[in-house]
Design a protein around this nucleic acid. Structure first.
Lengths: 344, 344
DNA sequence: GCAGTCACCTACAACGATGTACGATCGCCG
DNA sequence: CGGCGATCGTACATCGTTGTAGGTGACTGC
């Protein structure tokens, strides 16, 4: 029934002419308007089939003032956590009939600012934004006038809904897990010195609380900085720590990529994981299941985050949600694998 | 200068009224039409600033019949190769002024078919499509009537431009590299038995050619199947191979994810890489630099593939390219790392 | 002094859909 | 039989932009 070529020029007008009805009736059929005689509906549908008609979404968008698209602004897809997050967001959006437009900021401050005012914003009904360079002092920039949902821990109490992880609690739980399995010299990799708000600052806070609650001392020599959280920076940080000569029996890397880099560095130095050093990460990326050894990590409920964020945004867009801005904290759990087995 | 809220209802009409010109003149200013008196242009620009006007892209899209968007249909972003490819494609598209709409098929046949006819196609000017479930027999489905560029090795000589890798040559080079470093019992992981066209079939062909050219025999016991190319399936395949008892001194995994899974399995079995078994992968994902040991792999020129594909599609969209369908084969290289060092 | 260009701007009609308002038909009630 | 509500359709304006055609001075060249 369908035509050979993609329905280049077929419009409702053509369908209407063929079915012998008005163009609005075609529109009504397409949109499931109930009061149409079965006979009329059938004729219209036949014409649609025959002509291979497809709705011109652009025209509908213009008329309705909505596009059915949402932006998803992320640092980069090369980082597995963000790739997997994007995957989950796209799936969640699909479920509620939204299309996702991915935009990459490279974690560059100016590009994160641009994304908020980009012309593309007129093309999407709302934005899911995971900033990495903006901080609390930029909260004012977020008063944008279109539906916005924030992801991550860079900005709190901004003028937008916010989906975040229980960073402090989760980091504390991760550290406590290491302590409970007999570790005492627990390093932290990926610190951002001086930061309080932000993923690094919050997770470090959790780490400190666990150590102090256990009656141990926080040793500054064990807290290692890493600006970007890549495999490479994790490996470098691990090397710096080992070079410093400070004794270590466990490492809490603030994300999995760094943890995997650290595993690599430890292997280079002929240190056994977990026998000499235990390693725990954060994010539960797929890769953590297949590293050598497999990586114990904090699972931050990625699916839940994606779904919640999309639902919040969706609610704001179609106006079913219009209360004060919400802050949702996702559940976490610790996934125990080989890298933290107690020392023999 | 700019207004507080997002420019909700400001249209060219408002700008025109404020500047005391016709709406078309505003359009001309916005679009850089040259014949406008500097004085007029200034007045219009002031009005734009003052009102915080932003062009309504949807209206322009409707009028021009183009959207400035392209679709990118991929199996999933959880696979690092595709995530990195998406990253490169989005960057390349940005450079030529195109926005990318990512669609995930999960490598499910019906969803790959749907993506070709989806309503979203009307929202994008063209499609970059990387099928995994469709095959040569489906080439007919690709006669879609809108600009289409294929990625990958599932379909050749379809009615579309095509960017692919030199799979046979690259796989042959990878295998030859193993042979040259002294390996003789080289297993292949990830085969799709019976497939000739398709990534697996082509790479297996390259593998066979290298073995035969070296005067060795292809041992069917060393060719292990894996349908999906994940870390998990790579690990499982490796286990099956070792369980079979066939002696092995090297593994060519048809992608990096499986190679990393294989590394993991070898570690489980207390086999040393590269001393007992060498491992080589394919894709050169970022992770391969940081595995333990680091992974030798084939780099398929991902950036080049992304850029070429976007350029081809862009050319078809704005009509600067209208010749016969092109087939571009990207350059490859072998990246040598620890996993293939010659045995001690 | 008059046609022919150039520079600059405007009016109008599209692009393809949908919301609104209203007209027609039908059955059914009192 | 007149009237009324429930169905079923239509005509028209409209979303915000851009292409087309055309109009108006000013300047050039002969």
């Amino acid at each position: 029934m369908s035509v050979r070529r993609y329905s280049g020029g077929v419009t409702m007008h053509d369908v209407a002419a063929m079915a012998g009805v008005s163009i609005k009736t075609v529109s009504n059929v397409v949109n499931g308007y109930p009061y149409i005689r079965p006979e009329t509906k059938r004729r219209v549908e036949e014409a649609i089939d025959h002509l291979g008609y497809q709705l011109n979404i652009t025209a509908r968008n213009l008329r309705q003032g909505r596009t059915g698209m949402i932006g998803l602004a992320l640092p980069e897809l090369s980082l597995p956590y963000f790739a997997e997050l994007a995957d989950s967001v796209i799936a969640a959006a699909e479920d509620v009939g939204l299309t996702v437009l991915v935009e990459l900021t490279g974690a560059v401050r100016q590009r994160e600012i641009d994304v908020l005012k980009s012309e593309r914003r007129r093309l999407s009904d709302g934005l899911l934004f995971s900033p990495l360079a903006l901080g609390q002092e930029d909260a004012g920039l977020l008063d944008v006038g279109y539906p916005l949902v924030l992801l991550g821990e860079r900005i709190f109490d901004g003028p937008a809904d916010h989906v975040t992880m229980a960073n402090v609690d989760a980091a504390r739980a991760a550290t406590e897990y290491l302590i409970a399995s007999g570790r005492r010299r627990i390093a932290l990799i990926g610190a951002h010195p001086g930061e309080r708000i932000g993923t690094a600052g919050l997770r470090e806070t959790g780490y400190r609380r666990a150590i102090e609650a256990a009656g141990l001392a926080v040793d500054p020599a064990l807290i290692v900085e890493a600006g970007l959280w890549h495999r490479s920076t994790g490996a470098e940080a691990m090397h710096r720590l080992l070079d410093s000569g400070a004794p270590v029996d466990a490492v809490f890397a603030l994300n999995d990529a760094m943890a995997l880099g650290a595993l690599h560095a430890l292997h280079d130095r002929r240190l056994a994981v977990p026998d000499d050093v235990a390693v725990i990460g954060f994010d539960d990326i797929d890769e953590a299941k297949y590293s050598t050894p497999t990586l114990t990590t904090v699972s931050p409920g990625r699916e839940q985050i994606a779904r919640t964020a999309v639902d919040l945004l969706h609610g704001r867009i179609d106006g079913t949600a219009d209360g004060p801005f919400e802050q949702v904290v996702a559940d976490f759990s610790i996934v125990v694998r080989e890298s933290t087995a107690p020392p023999r």
